[in-house]
């Protein structure tokens, strides 16, 4: 469904008075998301995960330079036409909702952006919110009056409006209690099981492992490896890269195995 090949992103910045230099942020990243699967991209902060999402959505900052190729459903990825309709984003925090606009209103606007005709927007927004357990009372609130879990569900409702084929979730469990986190992850899994592609971006390997089919490990802008989720078990010997193994072994659940020879 989504194929990213040899994607590199750098930031141009002035150096000295006249010259410019490009600071690399993402180097030669290749990955693919298939229909019906959840691909988790794991990396520490600064590894370039969010940049990957912005590149797919065509929303890189103006001073970013990009090279490489991205294809969606077999055709070159045309982000401005896909955004909100065929590719949807679930952002990482409540700060991505406009603080001055009531939550329900923002969902209605999103419905318009997803291509719904004007008379259908309000009912579609109400239905989407209801699907995630949010009623009229929640819709009338401003974002700062919502809990973290409610805000995340509102953003999931926005992503569900357009019946997008590819869903990109940025840190979907950030700041959520276990119950709400499980609810969000369950929904993402259900979307994949319904035949859509889901790209989960996270720093938390343990949280997304139960949901992911495959896991891509990103470190300092470079892809270490992409492994099936099943490879993360035992002492991690099924993993190819030492970094992925170290990440796995560092999890408390695995028991802090001492890193063996690097």
């Amino acid at each position: 469904m989504l194929e990213v090949s040899r994607l590199s992103i750098g930031f141009r910045r002035p150096r000295g008075l006249w010259r410019r230099e490009v600071v690399p942020a993402l180097r030669d990243v290749s990955l693919r998301v298939r229909a019906g699967e959840v691909l988790a991209v794991i990396g520490a902060s600064g590894a370039g995960k969010s940049l990957l999402a912005q590149a797919i959505l065509g929303l890189l900052p103006p001073n970013a330079a990009m090279s490489g190729e991205m294809r969606f459903q077999g055709a070159p990825l045309d982000a401005p036409r896909l955004r909100g309709r065929r590719v949807a984003l679930v952002p990482q925090s409540i700060a991505w909702l406009d603080p001055l606009v009531r939550a329900g209103r923002q969902v209605e606007w999103a419905a318009g952006r997803a291509g719904l005709p004007a008379p259908d927007r309000a009912p579609a927004a109400a239905a989407a919110l209801a699907r995630f357990g949010l009623g009229m009372a929640a819709a009338r609130r401003f974002p700062h009056q919502l809990s973290g879990g409610m805000a995340r569900r509102a953003m999931l409702a926005i992503a569900a409006l357009g019946e997008a084929e590819l869903l990109i979730a940025d840190e979907p469990t950030n700041g959520l209690d276990p119950e709400n986190a499980a609810r969000v992850l369950g929904h993402l899994r259900a979307r994949a099981d319904a035949g859509r592609g889901v790209l989960v971006i996270s720093h938390d390997l343990a949280a997304v492992l139960p949901l992911a089919d495959r896991v891509a490990i990103l470190r300092e802008g470079a892809l270490q490896e992409t492994a099936p989720a099943a490879a993360f078990q035992g002492n991690g010997m099924a993993l190819a890269s030492p970094y992925a193994r170290a990440l796995w072994q560092a999890l408390p659940e695995v028991g802090f195995l001492p890193a063996e020879a690097g």
Binding site: L59, G84, P91, R113
Partner: peptide
């Protein structure tokens, strides 16, 4: 971030400017 999110939903710059 909310402007970036609006554009990720498919809004154009003019719409983001007028609404947000």
């Amino acid at each position: 971030d909310f402007a970036l999110y609006a554009m990720a939903q498919g809004a154009g710059r003019a719409e983001v400017a007028l609404r947000h």
